[in-house]
């Protein structure tokens, strides 16, 4: 499988990375180079193999339902590029 320029543009948009036109072809070549190389995985027979879920045996621990966190508005907003009245401001979204 190899990707074409349109796919590269689509993937870049899905990933929200602006890709100037002149970068599309180089990126396409780089991706295809890598994809060609990982292609060899297809030759492995995995018919009855389960995908890995936990690499080291472990079980999911459950928290108690207690309020132990929050009320740290200052910390939450401390690094915000554009804090406004306790909110994070972003360019206006029209729904």
């Amino acid at each position: 499988m190899s990707v074409d320029a349109d796919t590269v543009r689509k993937i870049a948009h899905l990933a929200r990375i602006k890709l100037p036109d002149e970068r599309v072809e180089p990126m396409m070549n780089e991706l295809n180079n890598i994809l060609d190389w990982v292609e060899q995985l297809r030759e492995v027979d995995t018919a009855d193999v389960e995908p890995t879920t936990a690499v080291i045996a472990n079980r999911l621990r459950w928290r108690e339902d207690e309020v132990t966190d929050g009320n740290v508005q200052e910390k939450v907003l401390a690094n915000a590029p554009k804090p406004l009245h306790g909110f994070f401001a972003v360019p206006k979204v029209i729904e």
Partner: peptide, 23 residues
């Protein structure tokens, strides 16, 4: 970009799922 591609619709099984099985 690679990560987004291998998880995207139509490619998940061939790439990501296969990789987790090989793992």
């Amino acid at each position: 970009m690679i990560g987004t591609y291998v998880l995207s619709a139509g490619y998940y099984d061939a790439y990501y799922l296969q990789a987790q099985k090989v793992r």
